[in-house]
Amino acid sequence: MDVEELRQRLEHEKESLPLPLSITRQFSIDYAQVDDLLAWQQLASHHHLVCLDDEFYPPLLKQIYDPPVILLVKGNLESLNLPAIAVVGSRAVSQSGQSLTKQIVTDLVSAGLSLTSGMALGVDGIAHRAALDCRGVTVAVLGTGIEEVYPKRHQSLYDEIVERGCVVSEYNPHVKPFAGNFPKRNRIISGLSLGTLVTEARLKSGSLISARMAMEQGREVFAMPGNVMGGQSQGCHELIRNGAKLVEVAADILEELTSLYQFQLEELQTSHHIDQQEMCDLPFASLLASVGYETTPIDQIVEHSGIAINLVLEQLLELELLGWVEAVPGGYIRQKRS
């Protein structure tokens, strides 16, 4: 792609947007800096420019009211199109919030979902790390240019995300942190995802912006309740009062999203030849995510996994032989996470 071709594509995409957007929208990409974008793309084979009309532009993101006209992607481009769940929350997350975030993300990724978040301190970083630790795929959406790591302490996390998934930005490569850009990037986090989970948020938390945008985009919103004596989860409680689904375990999310993400995965495998099993190596991942760490009845496992009971029994036996689950009176218990 040369400079003139990229300029023409950007102009065409601007004109093809709905009328209010094509007239009033302020684009993040400065056309005068097209040379910089192409120079960045040519620096490495894992640098990608993805325009709205590209094959790899995420179809879910294209459906939102104001999709970015161009995405800068660093890492594995195919990971951008895997069925995803967004996880957001407090920067000053409590110890219990950290533990619950890790557990739920591990189970969701084990079920075959990728993890989308914003690489901020607190819940974002914990969610990315949990996905990486169980060999899952994770996507970080930045509120800075794609070459600006913010916060700086997340440099190693950034490098691992590029290796295992990808980082994404709508800004030119070296745009510095600016407060107004972070709420704007939240529409991309929710737009890439089938649903958004808020694991810990105060009433004025920025995470509620992501939840509100997910609702406006017609996506599922999930919230984890917390201690009513403290203020760390008041925002989550407010979301639940306003219709978000209360989440205690990953299965609460999977039972809402299973049909959606299986359909999306089938579509992607047909069009892009993506093998999800290569991206997540846990055995019988969707079934495993339906078995809790307390006794889970067999009928509940069948319902949550969406798998026929004869196949469930066969796979549970194999998981038991491998040490992943244990048969107990009343059902099964999961024995390990990764």
Results as ranks from 00 to 15, higher is better:
Gly235Glu: 02
Pro20Cys: 07
Ile189Val: 07
Leu282His: 05
Phe284Thr: 04
Asn310His: 12
Glu303Thr: 11
Ser114Gly: 08
His154Glu: 09
Leu194Trp: 00
Trp324Tyr: 15
Leu21Cys: 13
Glu5Met: 07
Phe27Ile: 08
Ser94Asp: 04
Leu115Cys: 11
Thr258Val: 08
Gln8Thr: 05
Lys74Met: 04
Thr116Glu: 11
Glu200Gln: 04
Trp324Glu: 14
Gly306Trp: 12
Pro225Val: 03
Val34Gly: 02
Leu208Arg: 01
Glu318Trp: 00
Arg135Glu: 04
Lys184Gly: 00
His237Asp: 05
Ser271Val: 15
Gln217Asn: 15
Thr116Ser: 10
Gly292Ser: 14
Tyr293Glu: 14
Glu294Asp: 10
Asp159Cys: 12
Thr270Ser: 12
Asp299Glu: 13
Gly122Val: 02
Leu72Val: 14
Lys184Arg: 12
Leu268Ala: 12
Ile70Leu: 10
Leu52Met: 15
Gly292Pro: 03
Leu321Ser: 13
Ser16Asp: 05
His48Asn: 08
Glu13Ala: 13
Gln26Cys: 15
Glu148Met: 14
Glu147Pro: 00
Leu322Val: 03
Glu318Leu: 09
Leu246Lys: 13
Glu266Phe: 01
Ala32Tyr: 09
Leu10Ser: 05
Thr116Ala: 14
Tyr293Phe: 08
Val325Pro: 10
Gln315His: 08
Cys280Ser: 15
Cys280Arg: 07
Glu266Cys: 01
Pro18Gln: 06
His304Phe: 15
Gly195Val: 03
Leu121Lys: 13
Gln234Glu: 06
Val93Cys: 14
Arg153Lys: 05
Ser110Lys: 08
Leu100Met: 08
His273Phe: 15
Arg7Cys: 09
Gln95Lys: 13
Gly97Ile: 10
Arg212Val: 01
Ser94Gly: 08
Ser259Phe: 08
Gly136His: 03
Tyr293Leu: 06
Val291Asp: 15
Phe222Gln: 09
Leu43Val: 11
Asp252Gln: 11
Ala285Asp: 01
Pro20Ala: 04
Gln98Trp: 01
Gln234Phe: 07
Ile240Phe: 13
Tyr332Ile: 00
Asn76Phe: 13
Ala130Glu: 03
Leu260Gly: 01
Gly118Arg: 03
Val328Met: 06
Lys176Cys: 03
Gly112Tyr: 04
Gln300Ser: 09
